[in-house]
Amino acid sequence: MASTALRRLMAEFKQLSENPPEGLMAGPISDENYFEWEAAITGPQDTVFEDGVFIARLTFPQDYPLNPPKMKFMSKIFHPNIYADGRVCISILHAPGDDPMGYEQSSERWSPVQSVEKVLLSVMSMLAEPNTESPANVDAAKMWRENREDFKKIAHKHVRMTLEEDPPSESRNT
């Protein structure tokens, strides 16, 4: 199983580096371990996160792609669907069996045909349009709904912080 996972991750990495989607970058942290990736996501234009470059960690299970990776932001980010410790709560990272409440359509959830690229694109659009229905960070959801100006201020502060941080590791080598 792990060999399928490795093969698939290598293929995905190759595809992502040959054809990187706009605003996204991702790859294994080291050549020895293809199951730990780092990704950089640019804040979408015309949103409060514009211009920020947010770094996240992706951890893949041995039976990938049967089960989804876990994703955690390393950069500080204040967002209704991201826990205070950076873990991302998004339907595409949930296995179909994980949703006892029935909030999510199965088409939005993880399946083996999803990919790192699709996950990152979903996260990107989540940054632009938070889902405040089932928030991971209740404070952020409340502020997003009730006090957009304060939310913007915090987001801008975090965007500035990402620009002062080290750039993502891929570009560090250059």
Partner: peptide, 13 residues
């Protein structure tokens, strides 16, 4: 332990 609810692995149910 799924028997009834195994869906197509693609995004279809």
């Amino acid at each position: 332990g799924a028997s009834q609810s195994i869906e197509c692995p693609g995004n279809c149910d």
